[in-house]
Design a protein around this nucleic acid. Sequence first.
DNA 1: ATGTTCGTTCGTATTTTATCGAACTATCTA
DNA 2: TAGATAGTTCGATAAAATACGAACGAACAT
Lengths: 98, 98
Amino acid sequence: MPAYDHPDASSIELMPVLRALADPIRLEVVRHLAGVPCANCAALLGDRPKSSMSHHFHVLREAGLVHTEAQGVQHINSLRRADLDARFPGLLDAILKG
Amino acid sequence: MPAYDHPDASSIELMPVLRALADPIRLEVVRHLAGVPCANCAALLGDRPKSSMSHHFHVLREAGLVHTEAQGVQHINSLRRADLDARFPGLLDAILKG
DNA sequence: ATGTTCGTTCGTATTTTATCGAACTATCTA
DNA sequence: TAGATAGTTCGATAAAATACGAACGAACAT
């Protein structure tokens, strides 16, 4: 399994977070993940090719927004809400409401 | 004087706001404006060409983050904090702290 | 009128980001 | 072992954003 490297909570940076959120597909993913404990990638595919979504998940992971963990064949994604709330209080709430 | 068109408060959209913020120079401008009532463009130039900054101000205006008003030769910019707070409560606060 | 200042607009070059198919890897199942 | 499934990685293309000089326009002063 590919070793995902997630930034740890304290090294999540604002600019990558904003860049990650500044894309309609990724924002949609974040919104979806905010409503469920976790989800595999397929659940968020829509009609787009897998490779595109893989790219978006990569961006989200790198920014520290999403945690991905291989679990058997599928990879489970979850929103790093606690980490984000700690680092940028109110940010996620504000964005999820808008 | 060029007629600036600012979106009115209720039609400020999240995605343009996020896109506008997802650039280091523009975030810097927003941060600066958050600390003063208003400022002309020159005050925010740094060492960059005017045309670049004009572009960034355009993006900020279009997104609804900044209000610009010609006042004699210079153009006065201010952060639309009240409008943003009304539309996306907590967003600006979260970003300005980060 | 002329010149100056402040900022915009235009045109182009450069960089970044997104998109998608194809090939690949790992895991599970039959 | 062969086949299926879930995602990633690669490589090419296309689209979007940024950067910057040069020319322009409006407001003001002399």
